[in-house]
Write a protein that binds this DNA or RNA. Structure first.
Length: 539
RNA sequence: GAUUUCGUAGCUCAGCUGGUAGAGCAAUACACUUUUAAUGUAUGGGCCCUGGGUUCGAGUCCCAGCGGAAUCACCA
């Protein structure tokens, strides 16, 4: 039978802040969450330890800065018996990840931002006098896995050969009240009892970062990748810009938007599905080369390659065309891959993908001919429907010629392009913002970059004829009337901008999360987003 | 949205054809002054996801719900 204390309810002393717009249901849910948090045995033990530390005059959450001088990995890399003088006064800090209690000696491993480092903590060193209360109260009975501590001392190498800190002082910097999952690593580097539950890992990414090997490294790589992209573009003279996330007309892509409401204006607003139309307005305004890492929002399904919010890098360059853009793309990706992984080859599952330029260029008609045997270049909508039927591809009546071709390609061709490949010259119906092909009737100057069977980038010679752009928008409108809920709206302000005159321009959008997946070898988008979208936790 | 599958201690996981729960790590206590997945001894810890049903009896079987994952559909 548990003592009643085990059922302690964690009460908050002040009134919880509940946002005024919360519905009654959310309010109820929120209060339940706070009031019904029952503590586990171990959580209670930690709270008791906290009280005992405070009673002993130790502040478990001290305010002053802690003068850290070294990081774990730096000491391990630099320390030798010969230069030990340089490590005679060292101050480190980190989270306790293991405590090995040897009686009057503790081996405590702390994890800092660069790795794990061992503290050798001897009772008579910390408490040289008769008074051993600090040892008893803090080291022996006050510390837990997960606590953040600081330590000073000198570096040495133990009998077993591990570079360690001979500890002279220990300071508790933050008491941990919630036990972390315990993951053990043996001397061969094998991990035991790793946390594999995706729900835990994604919901509590903070804990995942502490406990799961390689997670931090993945995100560091992603930042490197983005930095390399910025560096490349900045060197080309590009200007990084910001454009609206809240838009009254969600344009630039075919997708279902999230809708929200602006109270003061009393109008609906949409979270952007793309930033394309705004970047082109800036080209009209006289910038030659602009880019933006655009967080886009699409109200569609989610799975291992789709998150409701995701990042697209778009850039637009005046006086260029899509051929120029292909060259720029392959040059940039080669450099970015190299900067991220020190090699142009990325391993994704079974496949080795080489980002070294140049990449193959295949027209979409050739791709379809190669993988299905059908030459559809001259076919009308009825012919395409017949081909889809023969290929067992389900189609909807709302689909026009362009969409049908897209279906055939997506179904039968896309997955075959493992190495980076430009698929070029798309049918006009599926590209309402793209310039007509200079020589091939019915096609536009557009390419998609396929890598590992997935679309990574989409680019074109931008349509800058305002009259034709208006007609293309109107075609979209008729698609909408046929029932295509992803067809584009007419953006009159964008048309007005084009009427002032936009130089010939090449533009591209990169799926940054997908690129991140490939360059870090992850197979799900959740593993390249710190906080992937999840269903709300139940109360 | 559809199908399949999973949900047991803080963590990783056992639990057979139904008989009201086990291990390792973590926790608590003790021992051990250079350990390394430390060790030894002892102890505590479970609304077996939730709600129904079948049954003398359900962690186990059935139904519904919640949550996760995989596959498919839509999309990047």
């Amino acid at each position: 039978m548990r003592p009643s204390g085990m059922h302690l309810i964690f009460l908050i002393s002040h009134k919880p802040y509940i946002p005024y717009f919360c519905s009654h249901i959310y309010k109820k849910h929120y209060i339940q969450l706070i009031m019904q948090t029952t503590l586990s045995e171990q959580e209670l033990v930690r709270r008791e330890k906290l009280s005992r530390l405070q009673a002993a005059g130790i502040d478990p959450y001290p305010a002053p800065l802690y003068p850290v001088t070294h990081h774990s990995a730096d000491i391990k890399a630099a320390f030798t018996e010969e230069n030990k003088e340089a490590f005679s006064k060292v101050c480190v800090a980190g989270r306790i990840v293991s405590i090995n209690d040897k009686g009057k000696v503790f081996f405590i491993k702390i994890q800092d931002s660069k790795g794990i480092f061992q503290l050798y903590v001897k009772r008579d060193e910390l408490c040289p006098d008769e008074d051993k209360s600090f040892w008893e109260n803090v080291v022996k009975h006050g510390l837990d896995l997960g606590d953040i501590i600081g330590a000073t001392g000198y570096v040495f190498i133990t009998k077993t050969g591990e570079t360690s800190l001979h500890t002279e002082t220990i300071t508790l910097l933050s008491k941990s009240l919630k036990p972390l999952p315990v993951v053990k690593r043996d001397e061969d580097g094998n991990v035991h009892d790793a946390v594999t539950d995706p729900e835990f890992r994604y919901r509590q990414r903070y804990a995942d970062l502490i406990v799961t090997d390689g997670v931090k490294e993945t995100f560091v790589k992603i930042t490197k990748m983005k930095n390399a992209i910025r560096e490349y573009l900045n060197q080309q003279g590009a200007l990084e810009v910001d454009t609206p996330v809240l838009q009254s007309i969600p344009g630039g892509a075919a997708a279902r938007p999230f809708i929200t409401h602006h109270n003061a204006l009393d109008i609906p607003l949409y979270l952007r599905i793309a930033n394309e139309l705004y970047l082109k307005r800036l080209i009209v305004g006289g910038f030659d080369f602009v880019y933006e890492f655009s967080r886009n929002f699409r109200n569609e399904g989610m799975d291992r390659t789709h998150n409701p919010e995701f990042t697209v890098l778009e850039f637009y360059v005046a006086y260029k065309d899509y051929y120029w853009m292909m060259e720029t793309t392959e040059q940039m990706l080669e450099k970015v891959a190299l900067a991220t992984n020190d090699t142009t080859v990325a391993k994704v599952g079974e496949n080795e993908i080489n980002f070294k330029a140049p990449y193959a260029r295949v027209s979409i008609y050739d791709a379809i001919k190669e993988h299905t045997g059908f030459d559809i270049s001259e076919m009308d909508e009825a012919g395409l429907r017949d081909v889809c039927k023969q290929l067992n591809i389900p189609v909807a009546p709302s689909m026009g010629r362009g969409k049908l071709i897209d279906e055939i390609f997506g179904e039968k061709c896309e997955s075959n392009y493992i190495q980076p490949t430009f698929i070029i010259d798309y049918p006009i119906e599926m590209s309402p913002l793209t310039k007509k092909h200079r020589t091939k009737a019915g096609l536009v100057e557009r390419f998609e970059l396929m890598v590992n069977g997935k679309e990574v980038a989409n680019a074109y010679s931008e349509l800058n004829d305002p009259i034709e752009q208006r007609e293309r928008f109107e075609d979209q409108l008729s698609l909408m009337e046929r029932g295509d809920d992803e067809a584009m709206f007419i953006d009159h302000d964008f048309l007005r901008a084009l009427e002032y005159g936009m130089p010939p321009t090449a533009g591209i959008g990169f799926g940054i999360d997908r690129l991140a997946m490939m360059l870090t070898g992850q197979s799900s988008i959740q593993d390249v987003l710190f906080f992937p979208q999840m269903r709300p936790e139940k109360g």
